[in-house]
Design a protein around this nucleic acid. Structure first.
Lengths: 110, 110
DNA sequence: TCGTTTGATAGCGATATTACTATCTCACTA
DNA sequence: TAGTGAGATAGTAATATCGCTATCAAACGA
């Protein structure tokens, strides 16, 4: 039974979102944001990455509509702005390949 | 309640997979493969894209372990090789934002 | 007002992607 | 064996991404 294919526009949108998420730092950031709003400094602390890098990745995600920032005093609190992201994370978590899948990949074996 | 974060190794793996999926043509290909094995020519027909492009994207996905090809005579039948992909598609489909989400994006709201 | 903290950007070099054309390798068949 | 259809791959130019340093701009506190 054929699944209904994604509408072309939705697919393009989805690909764009997925691409932005396909980066280790950005993926970790959204994972951290899943727990609630975080400031750049907080994220920076968790990621142990230079501030500029964190800010850059946030900017990229912001312009993709994945996260949103809200200024409060001298801080900017970031949060997830696209519901699809949460489900993607959920999915990735529940799909955590049990170490076998990666191993049994043929790929240049021998 | 904090969700258990993705294991770092799994996260890196996941980011890699997600990145590969984050491309309109590749995303469409896996969507087509969801319906079952397809040859390159079949995919090419659906995608209306030059053969080399399809083959290249397949190669990229193959080397990422996302799809697998099996030769049968002069044809190569491709199929999805990573279970996570199917769930990702599922997730994207069930999240198909009904044109509203994109519109109500805050984005530089004051 | 001066210094500090928090965050955003500019600019840059290195590297990766993209999509294309042209070519090459198979497997099959006349 | 020559020809053909199905795929894979080299080569390439345009563009995008990555992560860095340096700087800029607010907001705040002394």
């Amino acid at each position: 039974m054929r699944q209904a294919p994604l509408d072309p526009r939705v697919l393009a949108e989805a690909a764009e979102m997925v691409r932005v998420l396909g980066h280790p730092v950005r993926l970790r950031i959204v994972e951290l944001l899943e727990a609630g709003e975080q400031t750049v400094t907080q994220l920076q602390g968790c990621l142990e990455a230079p501030q500029a890098l964190v800010s850059q990745q946030l900017a990229r995600m912001r312009s993709a509509g994945i996260v949103a920032g809200r200024r409060a005093g001298s801080n900017v609190w970031y949060s997830i702005a696209d519901a699809r992201v949460v489900r993607m994370l959920d999915c990735l978590r529940h799909c955590d390949l049990p170490a076998g899948e990666a191993a049994q990949r043929p790929e240049a074996q021998q």
